[in-house]
Design a protein around this nucleic acid. Structure first.
Lengths: 257, 257
DNA sequence: AGAAAAGACTAACAAATGTGAAGGCAGGCC
DNA sequence: GGCCTGCCTTCACATTTGTTAGTCTTTTCT
């Protein structure tokens, strides 16, 4: 139940051990269909949900009907950790594939945090890494070319998915419609189609049946100016943190840098 | 030294009390000039810095020379809280006006966190609110019109600055060049100029000498689809949190809705 | 199996945004 | 006082991106 979370934390050179207690706290592990609204904007909740399998997204809807996906959630990601600290939710969450999720009640989580500072730090770190990913998206949308943005996104997903054991060699499953992809990158579906065509033409990726195969990692990372450090950077080496500062592992090698 | 931080936390209906200990931990309070590089991308640090006065920004530089500002920092904001949890920095920080800053060493901060769970939660909350602001920017860049994006940004800054006592009535000081503004919204300087012209023509804002006066808050908020909840939402009402859930104060009223 | 729906792809055109260049104004500097 | 420099502003034009709409294929539903 916690293995993807542990894998992710492990990739940063840490042990998820302090969070082991979560195993007993998880309520029901649920299975959802694709395209389900897992959470609606504006709700308050008394629990936090962890995605253990599948792909999901945080999004915002504007009055024009336009949608912006602000976060892609992969196994091991919390859908709404922020609800533990701030009331009200400024985003909705939708499943982009059939998903499996577990929920933890705020009260339980808070007890865990009170009893273990290293557990708190690990959870806080999740928020920090998420923010780094969002910053990277901001750079993509603002200053990268559409092609660079797509290239960067593919690189990011490859690393994040590989970290939790999804995808082998240079290919991974990404059950995203071109229209959904458009909502991720903030472009129109037609333009996304154009960009993908270019990436394929240039021999950078193969993309069919929702499986992406990266054909030329080097060039893809170059076009997207991708540097995996923000995903794989471990914690500060600190005695107080209970964390070891191992060298980043194979996932990073695969990721090139 | 901590008053802006306290004001900000207070606006969310909480007391900054648990962080009072910081007052003795702050090292040298420094004054910087405008346009100084306060931190460079890639550095590691052993301390966290709080902005106590002035305006600063986190940014990323691409190889093409293009710059994207990913966060605008106002008094009461930490420049690099994330360094406490993750090594390596994926952004630079530049002062956009003369600034005053205080730094706190990681070791000291960690001790504070270990001794007080509510202090930890308050700091974590800072990260969470920052992430919410970034999500909002993502929505702006991806799915709002350029005009809506500018409108939203102005609303956001008005609320954030008012919260820390900067700006009165509906006007505030924003020492941002149009070129810098372009790096915030991800547009070209020329286009930023066009948008500002429109906003002025429509009687929404007056903008001169780096002072913005909002002439029609209602319409500005409507155009930007601005809802201050993500900035003013307090914590979850929780016994464990030591936080009181007061009704949001006047700053929010001023912010409309 | 057949019908319906969803998704990928393309084309032609429209709108938004970027680029390069220039003029004007103000403040800082000698 | 005069000269630089930085910034705002505008223009003309190039490029990117969006829109609308249509065809084709695949999947889903009955």
């Amino acid at each position: 139940m916690l293995n993807t979370l542990f894998l992710k934390v492990g990739q940063r050179g840490q042990t998820g051990e302090p969070l082991a207690g979560l195993a007993e706290l998880g309520l029901r592990e649920r299975q959802t269909a694709r395209n389900q609204d897992l959470m609606r904007e504006g709700d308050r909740s008394a629990s936090v949900t962890l995605l253990t399998n599948g792909l999901a997204a945080r999004y915002r809807l504007l009055s024009s009907g336009r949608r912006q996906i602000t976060t892609l959630l992969v196994p091991g990601d919390f859908l709404d950790l922020s609800s533990l600290l701030v009331r009200g939710r400024d985003f909705g969450v939708v499943s982009l594939s059939p998903c499996r999720i577990v929920t933890f009640e705020h009260d339980q989580l808070r007890k865990l945090c009170e009893s273990s500072i290293s557990a708190t730090m690990l959870l806080w770190q999740e928020t920090v890494v998420e923010a780094a990913i969002q910053r990277e998206w901001l750079v993509s949308m603002g200053r990268r070319t559409a092609k660079g943005q797509m290239a960067h996104l593919i690189c990011e997903l490859r690393v994040r998915l590989a970290a939790v054991g999804r995808g082998e060699n240079a290919s991974f499953h990404l059950p995203l419609t071109q229209t959904e992809l458009a909502d991720v990158v903030g472009l129109s579906p037609v333009h996304v189609n154009r960009i993908l065509k270019e990436l394929r033409r240039d021999g950078l990726v193969a993309w069919s049946n929702y499986v992406i195969r990266i054909l030329d990692w080097e060039r893809l990372a170059e076009i997207g100016e991708f540097n995996a450090a923000y995903l794989t950077a471990g914690p500060v080496e600190a005695s107080a943190n209970g964390a070891s500062a191992k060298t980043p592992d194979n996932a990073q090698q695969a990721a090139g840098r």
